[in-house]
Simulated scan of single mutants.
Amino acid sequence: MSDNQLAPLYDKHETCALCKSTFTSKKIRSRFIKLDHTDTDLCPYYKDEEISPLLYFVKVCPKCGYSYSDHFGTYFPEGTRDAIENLVSAKWVPHNYGEERTVQQAIQTYKLALYCATLKKEKAIVLASLLIRLAWLYRKAENIKEERRFLELAVEKFNESYLEAYYSNTDMTEIRVMYLLGELNRRLGNYDKAVAHFSKVVDQQNSTLEKKVVDMAREQWYTTRDLMKKEQEEEAPNVES
């Protein structure tokens, strides 16, 4: 079957880990995912933004409201299942997010997943991955205030995940987390912290296979140093001769 006959989106069958009901969630066929470029904090842009994996990262059970990503663990720590059932499912108005999504609908699914992840006591890296993607969606929606808010929250969780040193079942590694801590702090104007994290990445250039991340860190280190210098010059008092 040719691409012309295939739809970019297809229904993937899911089984809710909370209520065990089955449902479908949209997924994009890989052949249709055409990356155009990425921002320096790894935010992806696609040739067709309507066919963006970011929109379908979160699955939402239409029956009980449990929302999650593939990064979530299968284990529910003691008491967390009851917490989600009482605080999410008991208040859930059946809603189907299993169709094509807009950016605003995707944002709603991320917020649901963040709430579920918090109640489920997921690892910090799981929450960080949701928070940075949510910031990216707000960037695409040109909502600078909310983008910044979620970047700040992402920094907190990436810091926690770096201390936990736990990245299983995610697309993150220690060196990527260090890089993102540098880049997110740079974007937030925390230049000293940014430089410190970029330096840590560059220091690992001989012990990592992720050479592209090292190159990005080196480039952003120079960029940040220039920004710091410019900021210092602007803050320096003008002394008349």
Score class of each variant (00 low, 15 high):
Arg133His: 04
Thr102Ser: 14
Arg139Val: 06
Gln108Leu: 11
Leu114Asn: 12
Tyr138Thr: 02
Ala124Lys: 03
Trp136Ala: 00
Leu131Met: 12
Gln108Ile: 10
Ala117Val: 08
Lys120Ala: 05
Thr118Arg: 13
Ala135Pro: 04
Arg133Ala: 04
Ile144Asp: 13
Trp136Lys: 03
Gln105Pro: 00
Arg149Trp: 05
Cys116Ala: 14
Gln105Glu: 15
Val126His: 04
Tyr110Lys: 07
Ile144Pro: 02
Phe150Tyr: 15
Tyr115Ile: 14
Leu137Pro: 00
Ala113Ile: 03
Gln105Asp: 09
Leu151Lys: 11
Ala141Gln: 09
Glu147Ile: 07
Asn143Tyr: 06
Leu137Tyr: 00
Gln105Arg: 12
Lys121Cys: 09
Lys111Trp: 06
Tyr115His: 14
Lys111His: 11
Arg133Ile: 03
Gly98Cys: 01
Ala117Gln: 14
Ile107Leu: 09
Glu100Gly: 02
Lys145Ser: 13
Thr109Ile: 08
Ala113His: 07
Arg148His: 12
Arg149His: 14
Tyr97Asn: 04
Ala135Phe: 06
Leu127Cys: 14
Lys120Thr: 02
Leu151Cys: 10
Tyr115Ala: 11
Glu99Phe: 01
Leu127Asp: 12
Ala124Leu: 09
Tyr115Asp: 13
Ala135Gly: 06
Val126Ser: 10
Lys123Phe: 03
Glu100Met: 04
Ala124Phe: 12
Arg133Leu: 05
Leu112Tyr: 08
Ile144Tyr: 13
Leu137Ala: 00
Glu146Ser: 12
Leu130Gly: 05
Leu137Lys: 08
Ile132Pro: 01
Lys121Ser: 15
Arg149Met: 12
Thr109His: 05
Ser129Ile: 01
Ile144Val: 15
Ala135Gln: 06
Ala113Tyr: 07
Glu147Phe: 10
Thr118Ile: 12
Arg149Asn: 15
Arg101Asn: 00
Trp136Gln: 07
Leu127Glu: 15
Leu130Glu: 03
Ala128Val: 01
Glu100Cys: 04
Ala113Gly: 04
Lys145Tyr: 11
Leu131Asp: 10
Gly98Asn: 02
Tyr110Arg: 06
Lys111Gly: 06
Leu134Arg: 02
Ala106Ile: 04
